[in-house]
């Protein structure tokens, strides 16, 4: 177990465009941290620099307070699971899992026991003689995890390890992954573009965009109190409504935008006139599309209503909708950063 730290770490592939742009992070011992961002945001490059697979243009990586920037990956005592799993196709499952041990000159007698332990941890002990091509996607992913676990590294690096699994398997794999991490308590860095994975797995989430950290926080903090319009627009499905209100941008989550009947009105609620243009049924929820009217002109917004809440309005009609005052977020028009509330 170890802490991981990056200090002003940057990676430039060309002179103008930074893949990673001066990121400072501190990851305490045993934390499960998720790097979340759209593709091309630099999350994988950041992970690969921590692994030692890419050399930073500037800045340092520290593992357990020791600068490891110049060290080769094998000298960092880390393990990594790749999106493609990167199993050695010509080796049996046993040899795949044993490979890191043999590479580290473990005593021969010790290896079978350790391999068995790691394989049993992921329920793949009965596949040890098979080749990777004879396994299903889920089984391969477990082999990759067992190979990472077997030498008990200080840090786990996981690069979108679930994205090649089908949706059903992904949910159970997510659950298992988190339980496993809790049990062994190894510091884990997990890279994904999937916000559901990020919210569900992470102790903390690092939201990245264009090589910069936009926000670091617990999943709920990042969701409820986005630091800027990027985070507000990236998290949530559908994301936060962002509307232009003169000097500021007003943001609110679709699930907080409800018909007046559905909410206790007090003086903490703000009323809006909403013209409904379309309703989309999603089973447990409905998405109500429409225009916000009055004040500073019209704006397209969305409301997300649980199907247990009746929709008291027909298509094309206007209705009063309300938002709790503390569910309204304000962002600076220029910088996109959060600002103090303005009177509406």
């Amino acid at each position: 177990m170890a802490t991981v730290e990056t200090r002003k770490i940057s990676k430039f592939y060309t002179h103008e465009q930074a893949a990673v742009d001066g990121i400072d992070l501190f990851i305490p011992e045993g934390e499960f941290i998720v790097f979340l961002g759209p593709s091309g945001c630099g999350k994988t490059t950041l992970l690969r620099m921590i692994a030692g697979l890419e050399h930073p243009t500037a800045g340092d990586v520290l593992i357990d307070d020791r600068v490891v920037t110049a060290l080769a990956p094998r000298d960092r005592n880390i393990a990594m699971v790749f999106q493609s799993y990167a199993l050695y196709p010509h080796m049996s499952v046993f040899d795949n899992i044993a490979f890191p041990l043999r590479a580290r000159q473990f005593a021969k007698a010790e290896i079978p026991g350790k391999v068995r332990w790691a394989a049993e941890m992921f329920g793949i002990a009965r596949f040890l003689e098979r080749k990777p091509r004879e396994l299903s996607g889920g089984e391969r992913q477990r082999v990759a995890l067992a190979r990472a676990l077997v030498r008990e590294p200080q840090v786990f690096l996981l690069d979108e390890p679930l994205s090649n699994l089908d949706a059903k398997l992904r949910t159970s794999a997510r659950d298992e992954l988190q339980q496993f991490q809790r049990r062994i308590g190894t510091t884990t860095i997990y890279v994904t573009h999937d916000q559901v994975e990020a919210m569900g797995l992470g102790d903390r989430v690092v939201v990245l965009s264009q090589g910069k950290v936009r926000q670091v926080g617990k999943p709920l903090e990042v969701y409820d109190e986005p630091a800027d319009t990027f985070v507000a627009g990236f998290l949530g499905s559908p994301p936060m409504n962002l509307i232009d209100r003169g000097s500021a941008i007003l943001g609110f989550r679709p699930e907080h935008f409800l018909p007046i009947e559905a909410r206790e009105t007090g003086n903490d609620a703000v009323r809006f006139t909403f013209r409904v243009t379309r309703v989309e049924y999603l089973g447990a929820d409905r998405l109500v599309y429409g225009m916000l009217e009055g004040g500073a002109g019209e704006a397209k917004v969305l409301s997300r209503l649980p199907s247990t809440v009746p929709l008291p309005v027909q298509l094309g009609e206007r209705h009063e909708f309300v938002i709790g005052r503390r569910d309204l977020k304000f962002f600076d028009r220029q910088t996109g950063l959060r600002t103090a509330p303005i009177p509406l």
Partner: peptide
């Protein structure tokens, strides 16, 4: 040979000869 395989070998701690003879040559 996929790049991930080379990366995995580097992280798993394979040195030059192990990588050449046990990973690259068989592949």
């Amino acid at each position: 040979i996929p790049k991930d395989i080379h990366d995995a070998a580097a992280i798993d701690g394979a040195g030059f000869w192990r990588r050449e003879l046990q990973i690259i040559l068989p592949l």
